[in-house]
Design a protein around this nucleic acid. Structure first.
Lengths: 248, 248
DNA sequence: CCCTTTCGTTGGTATATACCAGATAATTGA
DNA sequence: TCAATTATCTGGTATATACCAACGAAAGGG
């Protein structure tokens, strides 16, 4: 058997050994939330591998959701995953406050929006019907979590955009317009984030996130609000109580 | 302004141009489901870049869910995303048949399993209570989609494992034990797949997938089945009708 | 005709190097 | 003291090269 120059450490690839070591540091608690991970160059020297190999190990941590990148500042330990209870739609903002979480809501965009075919169908209105649309970025302790764009029928919620949108929408609609959420049709999927979304979320392009689409109905079954969210996948966890359609 | 030797094509990185080109071929329909993508070496020569750069472009396609790897055979165009209606739990197998989809179910493992703390709590039984556990791999046209492990109370469903498990569980429990699903508590999250799961799903490690945990209740609200699924994230899309908990 | 061997293809791992650009820390100058 | 400059971090892009391991198809032998 000839010399094996390229893989002297046998089966497990070297980047995986480094990955395991770093993961151990995180799960053991030596590196806490938002703590800086060693840089590519540091890992390369410290583990005696090339920078590309060091990077592979660090990228593996990202893929597992254990680390994130902050621009060119470095890599950091991901914060704990938080649960979003879809059945408790009213509460994301309220819940955060109750749990003493440092939640910030940034208004990215707000204004009128004409219903396209899809929105019109979901809200049971004519194509071209005027809607209010607004996009908000949710952060916890300065760390971006998800972006949400919501659409509501303008005629149904006059002057909605003049309220402070940095609060729970369901609460707002409930208090000022007496409209209450009863059921929600939800779709969840994993997909790559767009360039814009990546920028807002502080991600590099081609990163996968979780998209959540919600059509919210009142007690009469009439849809009155559509929400589209894109989450940093490693931070999201969605829970819901679903109704099982009987087959007969 | 001096010569720019390393990035002569200006702002957009070269791997991104290649990525865009290949994505265009896919979305335009020139490359159909499961069609082979050009190899790393071919892309490198064809676009006059190094193999590492070619790989970056191809890996970006994977990250977006547009392509998948099949071992060392090459990269291929991902099949269309399929929707799993959580509220229609009865139907994954039945639905596939109805839509003439070539669904295969492989039994990976089946046997008795003692309830741990978490399972016991969710099923409202004692720790150590005997359960039936079985793991199945779902494929469509030979292409792995997800792995599911289900747990049911052994005493409640005697001889369950002697039935053919390559069919809808809900249907099986309904027909033979007269137990019907009524509500489901669901949790969905994105997470890296384990080594085992990666092998079964034909993925490389450190790939993100979507995990779905289900606790299924009957009309009396008694939990009788727990299902844990891990999906290839680019193929999954989950829909559900949820109940909104009123706040008052 | 079938089985085996060979060879070319594919991705997987790994190194060494180079320069760019954003962010920050340290130094310098007014 | 404070502002501006400079040096040094960080990751981002990119090349060129090397060998390994798995797979498949073509060529060869019985």
């Amino acid at each position: 058997m000839p010399d094996d120059l390229t893989n002297p450490t046998e089966d497990p690839p070297r980047f995986r050994l480094i990955f395991n070591a770093l993961r151990g540091e995180i799960t053991a608690g030596n590196l806490v939330e938002h703590a800086a991970l060693p840089s590519e160059r540091y890992v390369a020297e410290n583990y005696d591998v090339s920078r590309m190999t060091a990077r592979r190990a660090l990228e593996a941590l990202e893929a597992e959701g254990l680390a994130y990148r902050d621009g060119r500042k470095g890599r950091f330990v991901s914060p704990q995953r938080l649960t979003y209870d879809i059945s408790q739609m009213v509460s994301f903002a309220a819940d955060a406050q109750a749990r003493n979480v440092d939640l910030q809501i940034e208004i990215i965009d707000a204004g009128p929006h004409d219903a396209d075919a899809k929105l019109a169908r979901e809200l049971s209105v004519q194509v071209g019907e005027q809607l209010h649309a607004y996009t908000r970025l949710f952060k916890i302790a300065g760390h971006a979590i998800f972006i949400e764009t919501e659409f509501v029928i303008a005629a149904q919620f006059p002057d909605l955009l003049r309220h402070d949108l940095r609060q729970s929408t369901t609460q707002l609609l409930s208090q000022h317009y007496n409209t209450r959420a009863h059921t929600g049709d939800v779709i969840i999927r994993m997909r790559g984030v767009s360039a814009n979304e990546a920028k807002l979320l502080g991600l590099s392009e081609n990163t996968a996130g979780i998209e959540l689409e919600q059509v919210i109905h009142d007690a009469e079954g009439t849809a009155f609000c559509i929400g589209r969210q894109i989450w940093r996948g490693e931070l999201a966890e969605f829970s819901a109580r679903t109704l099982v359609n009987s087959e007969s």
